[in-house]
Design a protein around this nucleic acid. Structure first.
Lengths: 355, 355
DNA sequence: ACCCCCTTCTGTATCGATTCAGAACTGTAT
DNA sequence: ATACAGTTCTGAATCGATACAGAAGGGGGT
C-alpha cells in the first residue's frame, strides 16, 4: 500500500496539516521542518499528495476536457482537427492545464455518461456533428464550455470562436461561378445522417441538420442562385464520413456520367482531396473530355501541395482562442463571441469552364 | 451551489447509499424507486455523481496519462507523433478510457510536479528526450507505465513497444553505402543537449545521451564502418529541434562547402524533409554539380510525396499496442516487451554516387 | 515583568461520493 | 405458526487530502 499524507505526518511526528503545507504552502512552515518532512516522504516512498483527493478538496482539477462530437480517433485523422488541437495544447501549456480527451461511445447513453464522468474544470467542444446534448450535460454539471460554432438560441454569454460559414462558402462558390461554371455539385459530409455516399435530393439547405454543413451548403447556393443556377439544378452529394476515401466514393458514379458537373464544391479539404483522387483515377480520355474544377474548405497543409483552391480558416488560432476563452473568460461577454476571418486561396484546381 | 447526492437523497427521503446505487448499481434497488430518484435528481438539476469524489472513493480514475518528454504542442507538429496518438486514442476508445495529455513546463521542478499531479491510472510515455526522471516519479506513485523504448537497466517486467533502432538505421545506411556513397553526414535532433544547429565533433555515438538518437547514429556508423568509412570521416550534424526548419538550418552551411557530402542520413523524416528543402533552395548550378542523397526515418505521409527514402516504422500500431499493454497487461512478462518490425522504403531521394 | 504581535504548528470540519455489513420487510416452504 | 431465503434499503466507516480558526512559543518594546 502506498503511504498517505498521514503516514508521513506520523513518521515525522507532526500533524497532517503541516505535511500538506510542506507541499502546497511552503511559506506556512519553517524551511528546516519542510526539508525534514520532504526527506521523510522520500524515505517512505511518498510521491506527493494524491491528485484526486486534492482535486476533491480544492474543488478544481487543473484539466479541461476536449470533446469531439464524433469518434475521438477521427480527430487525429483530420489534419484540420489536429491543427486545432495543436492550438488548444499551446494555450493549455501556457496555463499549466492538462487536456482530457474524452472518447464518446456510439450509444447515446454511454456518450452522455462519458461527459458526466469526465473530471475536468470545463470543456472545449469541437463541433463536428450534433453536440447540443453534450452542451446540455455540461451545463447541468455547472461547468463552463466554449464551442467552435455559435449555438442557436444560446444566450449572449455563450462563448464561441467560429467563422461565418455561409459567407466563407459563398466566396468559394462565387469564384467558381465567375469562372463560368454552371453545372456544379455540392459535396458535404453527412449531409443527412446515415445517408450512404452519393447523390441526394433536398428541397433546401435548411433541411441539413449539422449547422456547419448547412451553412456551407447555403453559402454555395447563395452564390449560384445569384447567377441564375437554381438549387434544383445542382447535384447534392453526401459522403459517409469526412475522409479522402469517402469523398472519392461520393463522386465516383457521378464522374462516370455522360455529362458530369464541371465543378465540385466540397465542404472540407479532405473530401475535396478525395474528389481529386477520384478524378486522377479516371482514364486519360475521360479526363480530357470532362475537366472538373474542385474547391475545398479549411486549407490543410496537403491542400497546398495538391494545388487545391480552398477557403482558409485559421485552425491553430481557433483552438488557441477557444481555450483562452475558456480559461480566462473576458469580462465583456461580447468579447466571448469571436468570428475569425477566412480567405479564399485560389490555386490550380479551379479553372475557367471550357467554352 | 450544485446539489449533491445528499440533496437528492433528502428530497426523495432515502439514504445517500440508495441514491448512489441508483446511479452505479441499478440492480441494488427497485426499478420504481430508481425511476423516482432519477426524476428527483433531474428536478433538482443534479447531473450525476461528482467524478472526482467517485474516483477518490473507488480508487481509480478511468483515464491514462500521455506524456511527451518535450513540448506538448510539439506532439501535434510531428506527423509521426500524431499517428502514434491516433493509435493510442483508438485503443483507449475501445476501453472507454480517457486520455490526459499533460503539458510539461520547461523547468524540471515544474515538470516533476506535473507528473505527480496528474489524476490518471497509468502512463503511456512517448520517449522523445530524457524521460527517466518521469518514469521514476510514475514508479514512486505506484502507477503502471509503458514506454516507446526499452529502458536501460529496467527489470523484465518493464513493458515497452519499440523497434531495433540500431538495426533499422543500419539498413538505411547500408543502402546508401551500397550506392557508393563514402563522404556522408549524419543528422540528428539534439545530438548533444543545447548544442546549436550545425556540425559537431564526437568521438563515438555512445556519447549521445538520447537513446533513440544514439541507437540510430550507431546504426549509421555500423554500416559505414563495414565499408571502411571511419567515424572520424563522417560529418556529424545536430539540429535544434525536430522540425523541418531545424533540419534545413543544420545542413545549410555544409551544403555551401566546396566538397559537401554526397549523402545525408537523418534521424527523422521531418529533419530529412528539411534537408530536401535546403537542397531545393540551392542555385541550379550547385545542385547539378553536387547532388546529395537523403534518407529519413519513420515514413510519415509527407515522405512518400517527397520521394524520400526512409525507414518505415508502424506509428499507429506503436501507439495502439503501447496502450493495450498498459490497459491489459499480458500475463507473461515477456509479452510485455514488444519489438516492431521496420522496413526500408527506397524512393527517389537516394541515388548512386556520381562516379 | 507585562503585553502584544508574529511565526509556526495543530485539530477539526469538510470536499462528495462508495462500500459493506446488517436491518427491515416480503413471501415461501415446512 | 416458524424458520428461511431473498430483496430492498440504511448507517457508519472510509477514500486522501485542504482550509481555517486557534493554540503554543519566541521576541521586541515599554
Amino acid at each position: 500500500m502506498k503511504p498517505t499524507l498521514q503516514a508521513v505526518a506520523d513518521a515525522v511526528g507532526v500533524s497532517r496539516s503541516t505535511v500538506s503545507n510542506a507541499y502546497s504552502r511552503p511559506d506556512q512552515l519553517s524551511p528546516a521542518l519542510r526539508t525534514q518532512i520532504l526527506a521523510a516522504a522520500r524515505e517512505l516512498g511518498y510521491a506527493g499528495p494524491n491528485p484526486t483527493a486534492r482535486s476533491l478538496r480544492r474543488g478544481f482539477v487543473g484539466a479541461i476536457g476536449v470533446l469531439f462530437t464524433s469518434q475521438l480517433s477521427y480527430a487525429f485523422t483530420d489534419p484540420f482537427a489536429v491543427r486545432f488541437l495543436a492550438g488548444v495544447s499551446r494555450a493549455a501549456e501556457r496555463h499549466g492545464t492538462s487536456l482530457l480527451l474524452v472518447p464518446l461511445p456510439d450509444d447515446p447513453a454511454g456518450a452522455r455518461q462519458a461527459v458526466e464522468n469526465a473530471a475536468v474544470d470545463g470543456f472545449c467542444v469541437y463541433c463536428a456533428g450534433d453536440e447540443s446534448w453534450a452542451l446540455d450535460v455540461i451545463g447541468d454539471r455547472g461547468l463552463p464550455y466554449v464551442t467552435t460554432a455559435a449555438r442557436i438560441g444560446a444566450g449572449t454569454d455563450h462563448r464561441y470562436v467560429a467563422i461565418d460559414e455561409r459567407a466563407a462558402a459563398r466566396s468559394a462558390a462565387e469564384h467558381v461561378a465567375a469562372l463560368g461554371h454552371r453545372r456544379v455539385a455540392f459535396l458535404g459530409d453527412g449531409v443527412l445522417p446515415d445517408a450512404p455516399s452519393g447523390p441526394l435530393r433536398l428541397s433546401t439547405a435548411d433541411e441539413v441538420p449539422h449547422p456547419t454543413t448547412r451553412g456551407r451548403l447555403a453559402g454555395f447556393q447563395d452564390a449560384f442562385a445569384a447567377v441564375g443556377v437554381d438549387w434544383s439544378a445542382v447535384t447534392l452529394l453526401t459522403a459517409a464520413g469526412n475522409s479522402r476515401a469517402a469523398g472519392a466514393d461520393a463522386v465516383r458514379d457521378l464522374l462516370a456520367d455522360d455529362a458530369p458537373p464541371t465543378a465540385v464544391l466540397a465542404c472540407s479539404d479532405v473530401l475535396a482531396l478525395g474528389v481529386l483522387d477520384a478524378l486522377a483515377a479516371r482514364d486519360r480520355r475521360t479526363a480530357e473530355r470532362h475537366p472538373v474544377s474542385v474547391t475545398g474548405f479549411d486549407d490543410i497543409p496537403e491542400a497546398a501541395e495538391a494545388g487545391l483552391t480552398t477557403v482558409r480558416q485559421p485552425a491553430e488560432e481557433k483552438g488557441r482562442i477557444a481555450t483562452e476563452l475558456l480559461l480566462e473568460p473576458p469580462a465583456d461577454p461580447a468579447a466571448g463571441q469571436v468570428l475569425l476571418d477566412t480567405e479564399l486561396i485560389v490555386r490550380t484546381s479551379t479553372r475557367p469552364v471550357r467554352s
